[in-house]
Design a protein around this nucleic acid. Structure first.
Lengths: 300, 300
DNA sequence: GCCGGATATACTCACTTCGAGTATAAAAGG
DNA sequence: CCTTTTATACTCGAAGTGAGTATATCCGGC
C-alpha cells in the first residue's frame, strides 16, 4: 500500500500597501504567486518560508500566517507519480518609503479582482457580473433558490449589504458559474486578470483573510512605516477593505483602542493643516485580542 | 536536488457534545487523535477525510473545516527518509440521542485541559499552574516583562479578563514553561492528560477554533439534535466555551438572530415548566455571517 | 385541592457603543 | 486677507448590551 507520498510546495501571498494601492508580490510578470519546494533542511514550515522570502526579496517579512493547504487531484504537477500538496501562507511586508510604481513583481490586488474595490462606489463591472450570475441562477432547476440566495448574499443583492469579507465566496461563485478564465471560459467573457493554476483563488483566500483580520487584530500596523498620520492609516485600511470609512468615527475607534501614540512631530506633506505623526505602541504587540466576548456572560 | 517529497497524513479533531460534556474522538484509549495516510485516490483532502470518517465511525460528519498543517522537524516518523506533513481538520458530529457515557473512543475535552472549564468558577488547578508560570517568568532575565505580559494576558491575570478563545496560547505557554508531559517534564509535575506526539496541541487548536467560531457563525447547530430546547442549546454553548452564560440575554441574542423557529411541540423532561422545542432554520444555512462590519463605514 | 420547588419565559432599565453629522484649527496660495 | 484644503474636536440620537426582576406552568407532597 503506497501511503501518502507527495510533493510538498509552499506558496506565498505577500502583500504590501503603497500609497492607496494594495499590492501582491508575483512572479512571471504577474501570472503566478511566488512558490517553491518545501526543503528538508528547514526547522518548520513557517521558518522555511520566512528564510526563503528573505532570500528572494530584499524585504524583511513582518507578519506571517498560514492560509490553507490544497491538494486537489486536478493540481497534479508535471509527473504523474505522487500528488502535490500546496501549503499557502499570508505575509505582510512593510513597504519602505519607495513606492516604486513600476516595481517589477508587485501588482495591485484589484487588477485581479476589479469588482472588489468599492472605494469609488459600486464598480460598474459588477453590473455585468451579477447579470451573468442571474443567468446562471436561472439555468438551475432543482436548487435554484439556494443558488439565488448564495449570489444575493455574496454580492449584496436583494437588500443584503456588500460585505467585503466575502471575496473568496464571490470568486468561487464566479468560478462555478464559469465567469473566470481559470474555469475554462473564453478570455473575452471572463472578468479580472487571471493567474496560473489556482493561484488567483489562493490570492482571494489571502485577501479575504486579511480583510477579516484587520477588524479584530492590529495587523494593519505591519504594513505601516515607523511613523504615520491618521489619514495614512485610514487610507491603508480603506485600500485593504476596498471601502471608504467615516473619518471621525475611524479616529474615535483608533484612539479608544490605545494602540498608537503621538511621536510629537508633524508633517505638512499633503498641503493643508499639518498632521500629527503617530507610532504603533509595540507594548501591546501580539497580546490583546480587541474586544471579545459577544457571548452574554454571567457574573460567576 | 531532492525537492519536497514527504509523507502526507490527515488528523481529525472530531467533536460532539453529550449532555453537558464536550467530547473528542480518540484512538488508543484516549492517547491519540484518529489519523490516517492521505490516500491518492481521493478527490480532495476534504473528501478524503469525510469518506474515511464515515467508514471508521458510524456517525455522519456534519461540519468539516481545515485546521492547520504541521510539518516541524521533530515530527519525523518511523523512517528517516522524508518528513511527515500532518494536515489537521475539525469536524462536528451530531450525537444522536444515545449519550453512551462509557462509549469507547470518546473522551471529554477537559480531561486533557482541566484548566479550561470555568463553568463552576475558576478551576482550582489554575492556581498551581499560574504559580509555576510565575516562576518561569522570574527565571527569564532579558525579556521578563514580555513573558509576564504573555502569561497575564493568556491566563487572565493582573486585571485581564479570562478569554476562552486563548486555549491554544495557554497550552503553548505551558509547553514552553515545561508544565506538560509532552515537553518532557516528569508526569508528576505535569497538568492534564497528555497525548501522543503533538496531538494535544492539535486538539487545543481545534477547541480554540471552535470556541472562536461559535461567536460569529451558527456552527453550534451542527452539534444539536433535530429539535432542542433553548436551555439545551445554552448548555451546549456553555460546554464548548467552558463558561456560564446569562440566561435572559442568551435567549435575546438567539432570537434576534432569527436562526431558529418553534416546532410547536414542547417537552417536560427536566421537571419544571415544559420547554418549547425549536429547530434550526436551514434556510439560513451557510449564508449569513452574523453581524459584521466593526469598521466605521461611510454612506458612499 | 393547594403549596412550594423547579424550570421556562417575558419584560424593564441604566449604561455603553455606534452611526452620522457639525464645528473649529492650521497650513498653502492667490 | 480670503479661499481652499486637510486635520482635529465635539455633539446627539439610535441601537445594542449587561444585569436584574416578574410571571407562567409543570411536578410532587401534604
Amino acid at each position: 500500500m503506497t501511503i501518502g507520498l507527495a510533493h510538498a510546495e509552499l506558496i506565498a501571498v505577500l502583500s504590501a500597501v503603497t500609497g492607496d494601492e494594495p499590492r501582491v508580490m508575483t512572479v512571471r510578470s504577474g501570472d503566478a504567486l511566488p512558490s517553491g519546494p518545501f526543503e528538508l533542511g528547514h526547522r518548520s514550515l513557517q521558518a522555511g518560508l520566512r528564510e526563503w522570502v528573505g532570500d528572494q526579496t530584499g524585504h524583511p517579512l513582518g507578519y506571517l500566517e498560514q492560509l490553507y493547504t490544497f491538494a486537489d487531484r486536478d493540481r497534479t504537477h508535471e509527473d504523474a507519480e505522487g500528488r502535490t500538496i500546496s501549503i499557502s501562507y499570508l505575509g505582510l511586508v512593510r513597504e519602505q518609503a519607495a513606492p516604486g510604481a513600476g516595481k517589477p513583481g508587485w501588482h495591485g490586488w484589484y487588477e485581479y479582482f476589479p469588482w472588489e474595490d468599492h472605494r469609488g462606489g459600486r464598480p460598474e463591472i459588477l453590473a455585468a457580473i451579477t447579470g451573468r450570475l442571474q443567468d446562471w441562477v436561472a439555468a438551475e432547476t432543482a436548487r435554484r433558490e439556494h443558488r439565488r440566495r448564495r449570489v444575493d448574499f455574496a454580492f449584496g443583492l436583494d437588500g443584503a449589504a456588500w460585505n467585503e469579507d466575502l471575496g473568496l465566496q464571490r470568486y468561487e461563485l464566479m468560478y462555478e458559474a464559469g465567469l473566470v478564465a481559470e474555469a475554462g471560459c473564453s478570455p473575452a467573457k471572463s472578468f479580472g486578470r487571471s493567474m496560473f493554476a489556482d493561484h488567483r483563488r489562493i490570492l482571494a483566500t489571502g485577501i479575504a483573510r486579511l480583510r477579516a483580520k484587520i477588524k479584530y487584530r492590529p495587523v494593519v500596523f505591519e504594513l505601516m512605516p515607523e511613523s504615520f498620520t491618521l489619514s495614512q492609516l485610514q487610507r491603508t485600511v480603506e485600500a485593504l477593505a476596498g471601502l471608504t470609512l467615516h473619518k471621525p468615527n475611524f479616529r474615535r475607534l483608533i484612539d479608544q483602542q490605545e494602540l498608537i501614540e503621538e511621536t510629537g512631530e508633524a508633517t505638512s506633506e499633503t498641503g493643508g493643516r499639518p498632521a500629527k505623526l503617530f507610532r504603533y505602541r509595540h507594548a501591546v504587540l501580539e497580546e490583546r485580542a480587541l474586544s471579545g466576548s459577544k457571548l452574554p456572560l454571567s457574573r460567576n
